[in-house]
């Protein structure tokens, strides 16, 4: 993978120039949280944002979108023909790992037209990060990434080392080749090695997820789950913010007067009570504890069976956002009988 250098003072000018390709999006601070937003004022870009509240999935499977339009005479048409290209800057390695997992889920068996259409139009500029006390990507080996981005920026103090990850990335870079320095010196190399060593040691939260599928299986009927179930509010926040949660529902909406009707696909959550309700009124997961168990089974067991790795990427969003402090770190520790910090 070829690499270049970009002086930090050129960053904003460079990103702005990418508007020639499409909309440029990146993390912007809004009150307490960071949000991926379309950038109009580049001084608002928060380069230290660790976890924008809604992860990258919001570009690939928007929270709600129309799939079909239909009319009373029985005709229908595809409602999503193309998507405006978006260049998303500031995506951290853990999120790209989530993206690679979603790619497998949505591109392999029964390729999902809507995902593919959005995916093709979403170009990714990765950015290195320094973890806080909620990041545990190193425990999941998702703290570093070698694919899944078009350009990859590593912050080396006064400049970025810029990796070219795809043909599209190469186009992006060549667009303003004048701003980049092609010459990588041994000093640069040493600085990169030092940075890697330093940064990988900044993780304060380290989890041992060895044998997690077995632990999920063996703990399934333990009383401890009922306590967790009691605590859960069934609010669905964890599903909305988790970078690998992409369950959805589909509903038809009738048009008013001459408007066409529309079939809409929208995010859903297995934590919500009616998720497993079927016609006739039977609910397969009526109890909160059953829904919590399913969520964690899916994160820490099912994906390992299916894709060889957990669905959790260690981004820390559940730690930061669950109102009652149920999260992957907490659950792992509880199941393993470790001391949990209150």
């Amino acid at each position: 993978m070829k690499a270049y250098k970009l002086k930090k003072e050129y960053l904003k000018e460079y990103l702005k120039s990418l508007e020639d390709f499409g909309e440029v999006w990146g993390p912007i601070k809004k009150g307490e949280i960071d949000v991926y937003e379309k950038i109009t004022d580049y001084s608002l870009l928060n380069l230290n944002a660790l976890r924008p509240i809604l992860p990258l999935k919001k570009f690939l499977i928007p929270p709600k979108f129309n799939t079909f339009f239909y009319t009373k005479d029985g005709k229908y048409e595809n409602a999503l023909k193309e998507v405006k290209r978006k260049i998303v800057f500031g995506v951290h390695p853990c999120e790209i790992h989530a993206l690679l997992t979603l790619d497998r889920l949505y591109k392999e068996r029964y390729p999902d037209y809507y995902y593919l259409t959005h995916r093709k139009s979403t170009w990714i500029i990765a950015l290195s990060c320094v973890p806080d006390d909620k990041c545990f990507a190193r425990s999941l080996n998702t703290h570093f990434v070698e694919e899944g981005f078009d350009l990859g920026f590593t912050d080396l103090e006064d400049y970025y080392l810029v990796w070219v990850g795809s043909s599209e990335g190469d186009d992006l870079l060549r667009h303003r080749l004048d701003l980049f320095d092609e010459k990588i010196t041994s000093k640069d190399l040493n600085r990169y090695i030092e940075w890697r060593k330093w940064r990988d040691n900044q993780y304060q939260l380290n989890l041992d997820l060895t044998a997690m599928p077995d632990i999920m299986e063996l703990s399934y009927d333990l009383e401890i789950w009922n306590e967790i179930g009691e605590r859960c509010l069934s609010c669905g926040t964890c599903s909305m913010i988790c970078p690998t949660c992409t369950c959805f529902n589909i509903a038809d909406h009738l048009g008013i007067d001459d408007e066409p009707g529309r079939r809409e696909r929208f995010w859903d959550s297995c934590m919500l009570k009616i998720f497993a309700l079927v016609a006739g009124g039977h609910n397969f997961r009526e109890k909160r504890v059953d829904r919590v168990k399913l969520w964690y089974t899916h994160k820490l067991k099912a994906f390992i069976t299916e894709f060889g790795k957990p669905a959790c990427v260690g981004c820390g969003r559940c730690i930061a956002n669950c109102p009652v402090n149920i999260n992957v770190a907490e659950i792992t520790k509880i199941l393993k009988g470790e001391e949990v910090k209150k």
């Binding site: 068996r109 029964y110 589909i250 859903d268 998720f275 497993a276 397969f284 089974t297």
Partner: peptide, 20 residues
Amino acid sequence: LERRMRCGMGKCGHCVIGSI
């Protein structure tokens, strides 16, 4: 078995039972 699938293609999650 029967569940209320929304997609039928292993995506929407509604018919999940444990790991399947």
